[in-house]
Amino acid sequence: MIQAQGHAEHGLTQIEKAAPKVARFFNKQEMALLAQLVEQIIPRSDTPGAADANVHYFVDFQAHTNPKLGAQLKKDLAWVRKQGFAKADAAGQVALLTGWSQAKGTAPYRVFKQIKDLTIDGYYGSKEGLTQELGWNANTFLREFKGCTHPEHGA
């Protein structure tokens, strides 16, 4: 289930939570691995990828503020390293992620899904993900709200 948005809450929550560019929880090695992971999940295209958007710092900040999550992620990253992810080439990394992502209900899938969900929160809440990739252009001041101007919509 999508997290229930409360009472028509609206705002830039994720952007506000954007992490400072200093790792607070993970060590250098873990941060490098995390950067590889998030970039494979949402890679650079004609718009920035997750590592460009510093999503690994976002994940680090989440871990920093939530000790239980942090401890879990530390274990998960160690497991990912053991699978040879950090040393694999791009094709090898994709192959590993593909395997985990298709093994629903297993421990590898849980590891993949948790990192993927954090990547989604971080990336689509970042300036790069939200404005450059998705094209969000709201939270501004308008004299008039025109709404849908397409006569064919909902016809």
Binding site: Q14, L97, I120
Partner: peptide, 13 residues
Amino acid sequence: PGAAYAKQLDGFG
């Protein structure tokens, strides 16, 4: 301002 629905789409990349 976000795309939480993406968590329910399969895959990556």
